[in-house]
Design a binder for these strands. Structure first.
Lengths: 239, 239
DNA sequence: CGATATCTTGAGGGCGATCAAACGAAGTGG
DNA sequence: CCACTTCGTTTGATCGCCCTCAAGATATCG
């Protein structure tokens, strides 16, 4: 892969932003949005590039505009565990702790709407609509993390893979209710990291699900399901 | 165990509260504290009693004053995974989602400082000190959940048990730096639920750590370590 | 002291990891 | 255009950690 510098882009208006109503700025009034607009800038990365390294001073907070980013933690001997899979409108950053606790990597081509840290934290103090939305989003992340813990701690390999696929299907069908296909934004390696498995086991389980007629493949990234409900049943949704 | 009704207790003053400076009310001014005091009440449970069942309408939020509570999620076939281990000053409740997503159980005898839900959510709107602290605590919970995900997804049984013990030691030495002993607030079953293991494996690993001289036991609940640093090394702390 | 949880220990098996190799797609250069 | 590399994926063979099932030991409490 050719390594290109992250590029700074022009500044579209917030009013036209595709994730305006779901991001951290969702509740902001027009005048509040203007203040955010003053400290924001856009930046893009190619799939595979690292956005933040562990321990880096994070001098920004950001919203994903396009693409998909992963948050990954490491053990000393190199074992890795993904701890966040962030999609458009999701927030990246940790007000109060500028040291990055995990690596942020662009899983696909990625565009972030970034806010300089200090001014952003100041705005959080001054704009309740901002901190309120921030709290909502943190609590949602926490709920997701807890669901994820059940997957990691108690589900079988097959259930894990089925759970990930259903979750990706759910996020992929952007208002296209009928579409039960998706292009995976993750490599097998990223899926393994998400699931607490090895690449080989992920591959075997995907093959198994295909042989059982629960999914169909189209290349290694394209995937679809003829029976979404059945796939959900395999995923053993929490009671 | 004799089942006794949870008891309602008298209302001590917030000013004398042992966890006043660490709980959700930590940043409140005196006048703000008074408003909280108006909607609060105390309630106690015995070890083993369930505080909230999955799906229950939670008409309160609460702070743990004394004791220890667990948050547990279930799969349909009965598999369980603990997703929260809450200690004094920790917050229990989910503003915005009154339906309980998990079961809350008193791991030890437990006392909660409880706030009625609707008035509490109103105060969160009106007292920035409250919602700000709430955000801080949620982000800390999220950090802890992500560390926990690494444990569940990638650590070996031995590392898992060592990690839990070091974490409990850390929380137990309440300003008593020199004390490297603790009474476990958890049964083997609760430990297994925390770690994504079976009771038997937990027991075997504890025996193993004892035989290796990393810990000493005193009954099944009392535990100490002659070399905390060594135990941490076994726990394979994340880089 | 007996009744009942809780915890420990043992034997055996299965699921997922590990090690290894083949396969396919995309890109490079002769 | 075709060898050749590179990288991601698939498939196979074997191993070992942890689960399962079972029994025994210990603690707790009436």
């Amino acid at each position: 892969m050719s390594v290109r510098q992250p590029s700074l882009l022009a500044l579209p208006e917030c009013a036209n932003c595709p994730i305006r109503h779901r991001a951290v700025c969702a509740r902001c009034e027009d005048d509040e949005l203007k203040r955010l607009e003053e400290i924001k800038y856009y930046r893009s990365w190619q799939a595979g590039q690292t956005v933040v390294f562990v321990g880096d001073e994070m001098d920004f907070a950001a919203t994903i505009v396009k693409g998909c980013a992963t948050l990954t933690k490491y053990l000393e001997d190199g074992r890795t565990q993904m701890v966040g899979l962030m999609m458009p409108s999701d927030f990246i950053g940790r007000p109060g702790k500028p040291q990055a606790q995990f690596e942020v990597v662009a899983a696909t081509d990625l565009m972030l709407c970034m806010y300089r840290r200090t001014p952003f934290e100041k705005l959080m103090q001054e704009i309740p609509h901002l901190s309120q939305r921030m709290l909502e989003m943190s609590l949602d992340e926490l709920d997701a993390a807890r669901e994820w813990m059940v997957l990691l701690g108690r589900k079988t390999a097959r259930e894990k893979v089925a759970s990930l696929l259903t979750s990706l299907f759910r996020r992929a069908r952007l208002d296209a209710e009928t579409e039960i296909r998706a292009d995976l934004p993750l490599t097998r390696e990223a899926m393994a990291s998400y699931l607490g498995l090895t690449i080989e086991t992920v591959s075997r389980q995907i093959t198994g699900l295909r042989k059982d007629g629960l999914i169909t493949l189209n290349g290694s990234r394209g995937i679809a399901t003829p029976d979404f409900a059945a796939l959900c049943r395999v995923a053993e949704k929490a009671a």
